[in-house]
Amino acid sequence: MLAFIARRLLVAIPTLAVVVALSFALTRAAPGGPFDEEQALPPEIRANLEAAYGLDQPAHRQFVRYVAGLLRGDFGPSFRFRDFTVTELIAGGLPVSLTIGLAALTLALAVGIPLGAGAALARGRFLDRLVMGLAVAGISVPVFVIAPFFALVFGIWLRWLPVAGWEPGRATDLVLPVATLALPVIAYVARLTRGSLLEVLRAPWIRAARARGLPQRAVLLRHALPAALLPVVSYLGPAAAAVLAGSLVVETIFGLPGIGRHLVQGALNRDYTLVMGMVIVYAVFMILLNLLADLAYAWLDPRIRHGRRA
């Protein structure tokens, strides 16, 4: 188990190296630079700035310098947020983003799995059609439509929740962003759970469990559901990616001080170090969530735990 985790973390190192190299190349390849503004800077000031940030040096030198910084845990200074290092910017926004991201994932599983299971058990009946109809809607409607819609309904018409904004410790600020982020994932998880559970319920060992006289509850919860959740667990990685992508939009619309807006703003401003820092943070996050998904998979399926597939 520990060996497995260690191996996976070792494999993550080359993955991260590729991410760093690619994102470095791509940010430099984008036209423009961090000090291009509508009003051109005087050439001397511009030259001074570029020298201060090392941009006057050849790209490979810049890369070596950046990687050397990374190895010391230093993401470098932000080019646009003067007097802030990228590390500070990320540290400031990460708790907010992590909170809404993990809350959205948790909510998606907590709601999506029971909905999907309920739909599977009510197959072809009203509940099934209702849940699957909502699921199609949840998957099809993009986050940037859901977010303003929620803000309009719950913030302006019903006045139940703040339209946007953030004050540390005020949980009501989180409800709409988390719900918006979770909705598409809930929809997908519900569909996955339904399909998978329907398949598992046809398995011969489910019939055998029922033939043994086990009550329906036990058959469902102990025998069917753990097996039915395997595809859902596999989906955790992509789900995390969906939540990350959604958080960029959601943080902007609901005015949350997370790191999502740093990525968008950083990219628009050609804030090289900030963009790369963000990409690395997201990559680490994805790798960890995929590792978590694999661990959960092994926990659910002993055949994988034992390192072979039957």
Binding site: P204, A211, R212
Partner: peptide, 16 residues
């Protein structure tokens, strides 16, 4: 009434 099925391997729950 107990029941033993043809495919015995298939009548055991794989994750328990």
């Amino acid at each position: 009434i107990g029941f033993v099925f043809q495919d015995a391997g298939g009548s055991l729950t794989p994750h328990l």
